[in-house]
Design a protein around this nucleic acid. Structure first.
Length: 871
RNA sequence: GCCCAGGUGGUGAAAUCGGUAAACACAGGGGACUUAAAAUCCCCCGGGGAAACCCUUGCGGGUUCGAGUCCCGCCCUGGGCACCA
């Protein structure tokens, strides 16, 4: 057999054999427990994979392989998130049709994933842009529609002027389109929404049920943004005249405000309406109209990015109208201002400048009264604005000293008694905007009939096929390119048979990825999206692995759809992903150069990105490198093809697993890949050395081998099994590899010494091969064969720990004096405390440390440590 | 500003329940083999000190027989959110 790791000699051959044997096909045996290991649904981009992407796929693969060897039925599928903006934008840029393009790119991804030995069951491969898949995306859309969870509404939506479509709130990052980075603007268009807000509480509460990274849960909580407060009416009671007089109003105009701090209502010295608030025109005094309209126009014009710009100053105007503060009896001025958003709460607030930073800032700018009504304690002169809600009432007189929390409760009641309003829960979460004015998505299965209105396409007519077209470029008119295809648009109403128009918007890509994990359970079903039975067997996903960037997009939407399908009775569980883990990135050195004269850097930029070639040509003092995420746009990519060619697939796997904890970023380093190669060399060398002495029937002989060298090696063998099993389960692949290295070193020493029986060596060697199998499967199978074994290591049972082998013959007791290590004792496990104590106190080193001191007490941790406390 | 995750040798990191800090590697130094180099193997490798010992997990306090680990206050780095009333 080989005595070195020579990947060229065997890796490709093993991949061929695995494929030939259909080794990764999921086999369902009802007697075994299931394990569903899933990677995020990738969009296959034209750039192909980098070794960065493998940071996601390799660890999941280790887990899937280990679980299979541990006796589970493992579902480990892969498919393509092929619909959506990224694919379509790329197709337009390349002047191609997205369908063949995506198929081609997916084939590349698949080839690259196979190249590193990922054990996907390709018989379950799915593509979300295939009619056999999106038929069921449309079917689920109709379930939402039927349940009143899909509706059409007009709303000032986020419009990306580059992608020429609207975006969901979740797709806007810092005012920029998440795909192309263009600043988004507001555009009012009729749009389709999913009523995810109906599920806000459940999406929030059920986070308790799942094992996800705390950071992701927190982001979802923040995104949902539940806040409890009061909502109540303010009556508009007076209006300023052009001569400056204030005249009472007889009408019954009123507006609602939302506040979480009803306890500060006594300090509400003005009110603010959002510029777009519907009441603005009606209450504004005629001589104030011009100014008020200017504020509104300014707010409408501003892009999301402008609004987020640093140091933005609040801009507002007095409407001339006054509202009655029911709690003070005072009339307070009503302003419009851009810092109040129409989209949250009621679009109107009561302003309490003494206890809210924004109101405080606005009041200072416009010279409005700031009245202190709560504080940290009675009589306290806290600095204003005092915004903490831990505190007590300072006004009015009969409320003084009442804790704020209690005051809130009492005031909620008063609101209800007076019929003004009451308790109210508000969410930051908005409904999910799903329609896109783009070609490359699942058509929304709705028909618009002049007589009957909106009519859902009947199930038997699904899928509504995306028409084959030559030109599919977005129009930018706010209409999808499908609107220009009469054969698609013109149809008949299912209800009345009259002429009707198809909905021409398509669904955003996140619809497709909101249920694909269910389809993998039953990917070829043509009667229903999935068989309930199969989904019940496989779901929920036992381990879901992907990047943290989908914290509030895909991961929120998928939870929402799952809950809707649960309510529909199609699935029994309420959460799709029991365990979620985020892998770390792979960073690579990225060359930049210093700016030249006349070149200006944007904020946050340190230099100008250049290519590797450019970096080599420039004088070294002008070039500097930064560690950045591998991506084609940065020109710092190492492909799996290059890496496998140069180092070998198993070395690449071991390197990525060993370099750092799974969730942490690593810096790509050729030197360290060499370390992984050396480790595999050592494994081959020791196993080749043992091979001639290997005894296939070692199990029959192992009990007889009982020298102390045998016992030591068996202890190391079983300790390695225990450690590797445990580390795989806790996603600590780096320390699992460290344990394998340690075991390899121990085995090498034991082999060299030659004191160990052949049976014990055989057990150790066989164990090493099988423990290695999930991490370096090509090498494991290669050695397995050289050991005269049939089949594949993946089909072997994973080594089991024999507890009796772990028992130590001696333990090292650390001896401390006043917490400082002075000596150590080697004793039998379970040695009595009194004996340890006398052994310790007779130690020369301990005596020296105790010199002149008196022993106060002795702390003993059995089999571990002894601490002499002395004064 | 708010929320989350981090800060340990020259480097990547380990220490899972409060019990010998630095496992396992990378780089470096020394040696063996070799005509030579590469590869491989062996030894050394946190700082100070001749040694005994002393110091060392971002900084400052605290709890404890004992703290990288727990508590309080700060500093720094990365990520997320950001006029959400």
């Amino acid at each position: 057999m080989l005595s070195r790791y020579e990947p060229d000699r065997f890796e490709a051959e093993w991949r061929r054999r695995w494929q030939e044997a259909d080794l990764f096909r999921t086999v369902e045996e009802p007697s075994r427990p299931k394990f569903y290991a899933l990677d995020f649904f990738p969009y296959p981009s034209g750039a192909g994979l980098s070794v960065g992407h493998l940071r996601n796929y390799i660890p999941t693969d280790v887990l899937a392989r280990a679980k299979r060897m541990q006796g589970f039925n493992v579902l480990h599928p892969m498919g393509w998130d092929a619909f959506g903006l990224p694919a379509e934008n790329e197709a337009i840029a390349k002047g191609r049709h997205p369908a063949p393009m995506v198929r081609e790119y997916a084939a590349t991804y698949k080839r690259q994933q196979n190249l590193v030995g990922i054990s996907y069951d390709w018989s379950r491969e799915i593509n979300s842009s295939d009619p056999s898949y999106y038929k069921w995306t449309q079917y689920i859309f109709l379930i939402l529609y039927k349940r009143g969870l899909a509706y059409r509404g007009e709303y000032a939506a986020n419009w990306c002027p580059q992608c020429l479509t609207v975006l969901a709130n979740e797709e806007v990052e810092g005012g920029l389109c998440w795909r192309c980075g263009t600043p988004v603007v507001k555009k009012a268009l009729p749009q389709w929404f999913f009523k995810i807000t109906d599920y806000a509480d459940r999406l929030l509460d059920d986070l308790e049920l799942i094992d996800w990274p705390e950071g992701i849960k927190m982001m979802q909580r923040n995104w949902i943004g539940r806040s409890v407060g009061a909502e109540f009416d303010w009556a508009v009671v007076a209006q300023e005249q052009s001569n400056g007089d204030v005249r009472s109003l007889a009408g019954d105009l009123k507006f609602r405000v939302f506040t979480t701090r009803i306890d500060t209502v006594f300090g509400a010295t003005f009110c603010v309406l959002a510029p777009e608030h519907p009441l603005v025109e009606a209450i504004t005094a005629p001589h104030r109209l011009e100014e008020v309209r200017a504020v509104r126009e300014r707010a409408e014009r501003a892009s999301e990015q402008d609004r987020l710009a640093e140091g933005r100053e609040k801009v507002g105007a007095f409407t001339g109208a006054y509202a009655l503060n029911e709690f003070t009896g005072e009339q307070v001025p009503i302003f419009v201002a851009d810092y109040v958003l129409m989209g949250y709460g009621t679009g109107a607030i009561m302003a309490v400048p003494a206890h809210d930073e924004r109101d405080f800032e606005f009041a200072q700018k416009y010279g409005l009264e700031i009245r202190r009504v709560v504080g940290s304690a009675v009589g306290a002169e806290d600095e204003l604005p005092y915004v903490a809600s831990e505190g007590v009432m300072l006004a009015p007189e009969d409320w003084v000293g009442v804790p704020c929390e209690e005051a809130k409760e009492r005031l909620y009641q008063i609101l209800e008694e007076r019929g003004l309003g009451g308790r109210k829960v508000n969410y930051r979460l908005r409904d999910w905007l799903i329609s896109r004015q783009r070609y490359w998505g699942a058509p929304i299965p709705i028909v618009h009939c002049e007589k009957c209105g909106m009519v859902p396409v009947p199930e038997e007519d699904l899928p509504v096929l995306l028409p084959e077209v030559d030109r599919y470029q977005p129009t930018g008119t706010g209409e999808s390119p499908l609107a220009a295809i009469p054969e698609f648009v013109n149809t008949n109403c299912q209800q009345c048979g009259g002429p009707a128009r198809r909905e021409t918007d398509t669904m955003g890509g996140f619809a497709c990825s909101s249920w694909y994990f269910l389809r993998f359970c039953d990917p070829h079903n043509d009667r229903e999206p999935f068989s309930k039975e199969k989904v019940e067997y496989w779901m929920p996903v036992d381990c879901y692995v992907g990047g943290a960037e989908h914290a509030v997009m895909h991961l929120l939407y998928a939870r929402f759809w799952t809950k809707v399908l649960h309510d529909e009775g199609l699935v029994s569980f309420v959460e799709p992903f029991s365990v979620l883990r985020n892998q770390g990135m792979v960073l690579a050195p990225t060359p930049y150069r210093k700016p030249r004269e006349g070149e200006v850097l944007r904020v946050g930029e340190e230099g100008i990105l250049i290519s590797r070639e450019e970096a080599e040509e420039l004088p070294p003092d002008q070039v500097f490198y930064k560690w950045e995420k591998m991506s084609k746009s940065k020109g710092n990519v190492v492909t799996p093809d290059e890496a496998v060619e140069k180092y070998g697939a198993d070395a690449l796997r071991v390197y990525e697993l060993f370099e750092a904890p799974f969730e942490q970023a690593i810096q790509w380093s050729e030197e360290r890949v060499q370390g992984a190669i050396r480790f595999l060399h050592r494994v081959f060398r020791v196993l080749a050395e043992i091979q001639p002495r290997y005894r296939p029937n070692w199990r029959d002989e192992i009990g007889a081998a009982d020298s102390s060298a045998d016992r030591d090696l068996r202890r190391a063998t079983h300790a390695a099994i225990a450690k590797v099993r445990e580390d795989i389960d806790r996603f600590a692949f780096n320390t699992a590899i460290a344990a394998l290295m340690e075991f390899t070193n121990t085995l090498t020493e034991a082999t060299a010494k030659g004191e160990v029986s052949e049976a014990t060596l055989s057990e150790a060697a066989e164990t090493l091969i099988l423990l290695l199998s999930p991490f370096a499967p090509h090498s494991a199978d290669e050695v397995w064969q050289a050991y005269g074994k049939e089949g594949f290591t993946l089909e072997q049972p994973f080594p089991e720990v024999e507890e009796s082998c772990l028992e130590a013959e001696s333990v090292t007791i650390v001896v401390q004096v006043n917490g400082k290590v002075r000596d150590s004792l080697v004793v039998k496990p379970g040695t009595a405390q009194s004996e340890l104590e006398s052994l310790a106190l007779s130690s020369e080193k301990v005596k020296r440390a105790l010199d002149g001191k008196q022993v106060v007490r002795v702390v003993v941790v059995p089999d571990k440590l002894l601490n002499v406390v002395a004064k």
